[in-house]
Design a protein around this nucleic acid. Sequence first.
DNA 1: TCCATATTTCCATTATTATAGAAATATAGT
DNA 2: ACTATATTTCTATAATAATGGAAATATGGA
Lengths: 126, 126
Amino acid sequence: METKTALTALAGLAHDTRLSLFRLLVPAGPQGLAAGVLAERLALPGATLSFHLKELRHAGLVSQRRAGRTLYYAADYAAMNALIDFLMQNCCQGADCVPAVCAPVRPRNQEPRHETHAHTRRRNRS
Amino acid sequence: METKTALTALAGLAHDTRLSLFRLLVPAGPQGLAAGVLAERLALPGATLSFHLKELRHAGLVSQRRAGRTLYYAADYAAMNALIDFLMQNCCQGADCVPAVCAPVRPRNQEPRHETHAHTRRRNRS
DNA sequence: TCCATATTTCCATTATTATAGAAATATAGT
DNA sequence: ACTATATTTCTATAATAATGGAAATATGGA
């Protein structure tokens, strides 16, 4: 991951509202949540919500999908993995490090979402 | 890690100059680098450097130590680990996840720097 | 075509963060 | 005590980001 990309991702998450949005989207899985639902859950005016969603989108952390007149937003797990990877480079320079692997909690009948760390064994079966 | 703490840490790293500072400090190990050295390496005016170092310090990402008239700044590995942990919660909600462990590259005659993840096996001997 | 719904973009305002010169503080040496 | 060095805090200014009402766009249904 490029430094500039990492910086944008960090700035994307470094805001109360946006972090909350992302945290709502993560357990929602790949199909995401409608803008309206997000607005309601966080009690945000539409314009403000839109502003932050755009920000997250530009940071590559969420994706947008239209279905009828509602827009669904979903967390981008690969982007989050890439960010974590980047931070681990900055934390330990690649040495003596256990890499992280993240995936949607319950992938709803869909193929695996990212090929990063294909070599890494999974743990924490819960 | 508390959300508020994570937000501060994210904001701490979400700036070009501060991320560069942190990346200079990481390989420097626990004894850190003098403010003067950092100023020179990044070609920053003293006041600007001070501003960003304070920011990083308030975010808990770096520590300060005085020796004579020079102030040394060092990366806080535990804080970085905590941040990565936090992000992994937000990425996969604790399920199906390999936790990360980070440590200084070459601990210079000093005891291990953090007790987080004492249960986790190390990998990547290089 | 007309109306309702879902959501965005526009724009003005306010709030927050960054920049860097100059003055202040801390320490050390003579 | 005086001077030099290292670095910070003070302060004003400039730059960037966030907020939210109002107007605009997109879609779907009658």
